[in-house]
Design a protein around this nucleic acid. Sequence first.
DNA 1: TTGATATCATTTGCATACGAATGAATTTTG
DNA 2: CAAAATTCATTCGTATGCAAATGATATCAA
Lengths: 153, 153
Amino acid sequence: MSAEDNLLKLVEAEEPDENDYRLQEQVGFILRKAHQRHVSIFAAHIGDLTPPQFAALAKLRDVGETSQNQLGTLIAMDAATVKGVIDRLKARGLVELSKHEIDKRRLLVNLTAQGRDAIERLIPLAREITEETLAPLTAKEIAIFMKLLAKLA
Amino acid sequence: MSAEDNLLKLVEAEEPDENDYRLQEQVGFILRKAHQRHVSIFAAHIGDLTPPQFAALAKLRDVGETSQNQLGTLIAMDAATVKGVIDRLKARGLVELSKHEIDKRRLLVNLTAQGRDAIERLIPLAREITEETLAPLTAKEIAIFMKLLAKLA
DNA sequence: TTGATATCATTTGCATACGAATGAATTTTG
DNA sequence: CAAAATTCATTCGTATGCAAATGATATCAA
């Protein structure tokens, strides 16, 4: 191989050929597919609630009454998104809303008795969902994957 | 420690306490956050196109003219979703549609000259997006992560 | 205290994402 | 061949997800 060939190879290694972009190998594309698969598994186990709705109930169970915005922060939803989620949970009687006594801007959210029953009943199913989502990996791989995924998120 | 204590520990290990469900540690929740972060990085680099729109253009560049449904399969979008994406790309002159001569059900999609220019121009930015998304990981971690993520998706 | 800022919530507009229903065209099968 | 099943595309309804604009309230600072 000539010196020119070696130089060419080096350049290609540093700056990949523009023609060689493989969508299927990009992290964003695979992340989107993995997320889709998870949502599909979720729907198969819990048909009458979406993952965001479940997240809201699960977090309210953790922290008790909070403001809508604060809840949004805890479950990684912006104000506009969390409003829709809470509205739908309220319409189904799973959460109740009240005004903050002191700070009149805040809208407090809390579980109803029915909402508490629902989340307690659903948590075992949620464990199964996590398990099934991770089923393609071994226990060791799961440990590694979760650590790295957390770093990315 | 008594024999009873050991038995108790064993049972707890197999069937975790129901009170101890941590949303923040569930794979679905973190997957959703990682995906959100990626979309945000994407938007910062490529403001005038969404990841699904980019995926459609990139895949058309790979495979050339295809039917709308086939394209959807290739980029993991159902028929209803891909229609919206293609409609918007068409409205912007980045793709063109035509009828399949033989199979009258099919709607063929292809890049326009403008669409081809756009995707060629954007691919280098997409490389940066992938890089930035993976920036919290070392090279070795990236290799491991991508292998495991692909298994999950 | 008051004027500038910041926070909480809502609304609008746009873009995925998918289930379900529908209709048209093609393929399979009995 | 003819009926049944499948495929391709569209439409509708519902649910995130986020940017931007708005209004109400609260906090900070001069």
